[in-house]
Design a protein around this nucleic acid. Structure first.
Lengths: 250, 250
DNA sequence: CGATCCGTTGACGGTACTCAACTACCGTGG
DNA sequence: CCACGGTAGTTGAGTACCGTCAACGGATCG
C-alpha cells in the first residue's frame, strides 16, 4: 500500500534520550502515564523517549505481512487492527486505546494491519531498540509479556463472542467492554468508530448493528445521541444480555 | 468442579533437579524436544525438570476462573481449551498439541478451562518456580513471550475464521491448520476430537460440521476413514476454499 | 447546492441452526 | 456368539436469524 508506506517514511527516526526521572515524550506532555511501554520504573530509568507521530483519522500506517520494524504505543486516539480475506471481507481483531501497544510479532512480520480511527498519536520504537531494552532491563520484557497476555485474554473473549453469541449479545458485550475501558463520570460511551467498523469487529453487518442499536434503544437499555454517543440506561439488563443469560422476559 | 480439583490434587509436587546437559523429564524419555518450556539452552542449564502427569481422555483438569497456580506444557496427547457462557454454550479457544503451553494468565486466574481430548501427558511448573526461572534466566521469559505471541497470532486468525468465514471455509481452514501442525508422511490428518469439539471450535453445530465433511468428500477434496482419519486429496482446492477465494467453479 | 458518506429502515432470501430419526460403532454382559 | 445400550456421527425437514439488496434521511464538504 503506497499510502501506508508514505506515512511510515514520514515518521522521524526514533531517538533515545538520557535518563531523567520525569522523562518527557513529545507525545506525552506530562509524564508517561498514557504510554504503556514506558510506564515501569525500569523503563523510566532507561528513559527510552521515542519520537511521536500524529496520524490523521482514516490513515493506514501498518500493513499485515510487512516486516515488523517497529513497535507502537498508542498515546492518543483510537486505532483499529484488522485482517482481510482475499475477497475483501474484513475482520477487526482489536481497537487500541491510549496505553495499548502493538506491532510485536513473531517471525518479524506484522500479523495485522493498523489504521487510525480518530486522529491518533503513537509512540514508535524500533524493534532493534526494543531488543536492546530487553537485554538491558528485564522488567521491560516482563511488561511486554503481561501486555500480550492481556491481549490474548481479550482475544479469547472475542472468540466466544464471535463463535457463540447472538447479534444482540455481541453488541451488548461490545458496549460494556468499551464502557469498562473509558470510565467516564456519567454512564456514557463514545463510539469513535463507524457502524461498519463495529460490524467488522463483531462479525456482523452494518445493517444488523444498526437494527440492534434500535432495538436496545426501544427496550430502554440505552439511549443514543447522534450515532457516536451512547448512554447506558439499564446496565444490569445489558450485562445479563452480554453474558448470555437465557433470555426470558420481554 | 470436584473432578478437576481431585485431578489437580493427585498431581505430585513439582521438583527441581540439578542441571545436566541431557536432563530428563519423566514425561520426555529422551530429551526435552517435545517440551517447549525447557527447550532453550538456558532452561536446559536451569534443568527445571518437572513432574509429569498423565491424564485420561475426557478429564477436565483446569477450570476457568480458578487461581492460576501452575503452568502446563503438553508432552503427549491433545488438550482442548474452552470457555463457557452462562447457559452452557461452549467455545473452544484452542487445541494444544505436544510442545504447547498454557496456564500463564494475567491477574492470576485461569482464563479458560482445559480438558484432555485424548490421553494426555503434561509437564507442570508452579507459578512461583516459573517466576524464579524468569528472574534467573532471561531467556525463559523471552521464550514465554514468543510462545504467547504465537498464541495471539493464532487467536487473530481464529477471529477472522469465526467472524467472517462460511462453514465450508471454516472446516477447510481447520483441516489445513491441523495438517500443518501434524506433518505426516502421507496427506492424512488425525482428528482426535469429536465432531462436537470441532463444531465448538469453529462456531458451528455438529450437524453442520458433518454436512460439510460430506460435501467436501463428495467434491473430491478429502476422503474420510472412520470419522477420525481424513485424507487430503486436493490440497489446492482446500487451501483456496480456506483463504476465502471468491468461489466460482467446484 | 449537488455529491458523498454514514446511518437507518424495509423487504426478501439464504446459510446455518433446531428438532428429529436413523445408522454405525463400541463395550458390556447374557 | 449375539443381544443390548449408549455414544458418536449422519442425514432430512423445517425454521430463524442474520445477510443482501434497496431506498431514504441527515450530515459534511467542496
Amino acid at each position: 500500500m503506497p499510502l501506508a508506506a508514505a506515512v511510515r517514511q514520514s515518521i522521524p527516526a526514533t531517538v533515545i534520550l538520557p535518563a531523567t526521572r520525569a522523562n518527557r515524550c513529545e507525545a506525552c506532555p506530562g509524564r508517561h502515564d498514557a504510554c504503556a511501554t514506558v510506564r515501569t520504573s525500569e523503563l523510566e530509568r532507561y528513559a527510552m523517549t521515542r519520537t511521536s507521530q500524529t496520524i490523521a483519522a482514516g490513515t493506514a500506517f501498518v500493513d499485515e505481512g510487512e516486516p515488523a520494524l517497529n513497535v507502537f504505543t498508542v498515546v492518543a486516539g483510537v486505532v483499529k487492527l484488522f485482517k482481510l480475506l482475499a475477497d475483501g471481507r474484513r475482520q477487526i481483531v482489536g481497537f487500541l486505546v491510549p496505553g495499548d501497544m502493538f506491532g510485536f510479532a513473531p517471525n518479524d512480520r506484522y500479523t495485522a494491519s493498523a489504521e487510525a480511527v480518530s486522529s491518533v498519536t503513537v509512540c514508535r520504537c524500533s524493534r532493534r531498540q526494543l531488543e536492546h531494552a530487553f537485554a538491558e532491563f528485564p522488567g521491560v520484557e516482563r511488561q511486554f509479556l503481561d501486555a500480550i497476555t492481556r491481549d490474548l485474554t481479550a482475544a479469547q473473549d472475542q472468540m466466544v463472542l464471535l463463535g457463540r453469541k447472538t447479534a444482540h449479545e455481541r453488541v451488548a458485550s461490545f458496549l460494556l467492554s468499551l464502557f469498562r475501558r473509558q470510565p467516564n463520570d456519567d454512564d456514557s460511551i463514545d463510539l469513535p468508530m463507524t457502524r461498519t467498523d463495529i460490524a467488522d469487529f463483531l462479525g456482523l453487518t452494518t445493517e444488523t448493528v444498526s437494527r440492534v442499536f434500535t432495538v436496545l434503544k426501544g427496550s430502554g437499555c440505552i439511549a443514543i445521541n447522534g450515532s457516536s454517543k451512547v448512554y447506558i440506561l439499564d446496565r444490569d439488563a445489558l450485562a445479563e444480555l452480554a453474558d448470555g443469560a437465557a433470555d426470558e422476559d420481554d
